[in-house]
């Protein structure tokens, strides 16, 4: 671990310790022994957020949790998180979540992949590794896959084992012994990431006969954000995509028909995670053809 990375992580911890207290960017720079100018440059370079943007997004995310889980008045929550008044809190809240705090409290939407988590050391390691490449937006053509599917019960340590086991079973089912699983697709039954199914498959070409013991799944045509990741950094790549890149390029994750949440493709260039997105009119990022992705 290099020294700037550790120092910037100390700054993140300092922010986390002061979500409920007034703290300035200059005080945080001072805490880690950097000048303000150097701190702003290094924080942006390592975290890919401005320091103030990180602090505000974390405060808003924690405040949203409290909105859902308590009956505390909105004006008090705004004050707890150091917003000048309820108006400035509501404005910032709407900018981040596209709804007012009162609406959030009423609807209590799923918090996963909406509320920005604390950035971890692993997140910083991923963002500053040699293999990190900035995500891109792609227009994807409808693609059919055949393979095996399972329900994901636990998302902590066991995910890779599920994948390996499914991939091994799939290889046994395929008539072409040289074929390797190419795609992992994550579906849900109700657009909720907590309740999801994992599919591992290979592309099914036109007029190809369906293998009886395999299921067919479709990746619908549409716009997808793609990011490369090494297998040990799936979670960090997803966090980067949802909480750092999407806000920066004015787009957000969406849920396609059949509740496809994301899919990963293994190609000669490595593993790439794709998430269906809605692109805001404000975005000026260019879309690439999906053939460029793989």
């Amino acid at each position: 671990m290099n020294e700037p990375l550790e120092s910037i992580y100390d700054a993140i911890e300092f922010f986390e310790d002061h979500l409920y207290e007034n703290v300035t960017v200059a005080q945080t720079a001072d805490f880690i022994g950097y000048s303000l100018f150097h701190f702003i440059r290094m924080f942006n370079r390592i975290v890919h957020h401005t320091p103030y943007d990180y602090l505000i997004r974390r405060r808003l995310s924690e405040s949203a949790r409290i909105l859902t889980n308590s009956h505390r008045r909105i004006t008090d929550i705004a004050q707890d998180f150091c917003f000048q008044n309820q108006e400035s809190y509501s404005r910032a809240f709407k900018r981040m979540f596209d709804m007012q705090p009162s609406q959030w409290r009423e609807e209590a939407p799923s918090e996963e992949f909406v509320l920005m988590p604390k950035i971890t050391l692993a997140d910083l390691a991923f963002r500053n590794s040699d293999f990190f490449r900035s995500p891109e937006l792609f227009i994807w053509s409808e693609t059919r896959y055949q393979g095996l599917m399972t329900k994901i019960i636990e998302d902590k340590n066991g995910l890779q084992e599920w994948e390996n086991s499914l991939a091994a079973d799939l290889k046994n089912c395929l008539s072409d012994v040289s074929a390797s699983p190419q795609v992992t697709i994550t579906f849900s039954v109700n657009s909720d990431w907590r309740n999801r199914y994992e599919f591992i498959g290979i592309e099914k070409h036109k007029n190809q006969r369906q293998t009886l013991n395999l299921v067919e799944r479709i990746v619908p045509a549409g716009n997808y954000a793609g990011i490369f990741y090494p297998v040990d950094f799936f979670k960090e790549a997803r966090t980067y995509l949802f909480f750092t890149w999407f806000p920066a390029v004015c787009c957000r994750a969406t849920c396609h028909e059949f509740f496809l949440l994301s899919f990963s493709v293994l190609s000669s260039q490595g593993r790439q995670l794709f998430v269906p997105v809605v692109i805001s009119e404000k975005s000026n990022i260019r879309l690439k053809d999906s053939r460029a992705a793989i």
Partner: peptide, 9 residues
């Protein structure tokens, strides 16, 4: 603004 918000290199 923050001069490094788009690129900090």
């Amino acid at each position: 603004g923050d001069p490094f918000d788009i690129h900090a290199g």
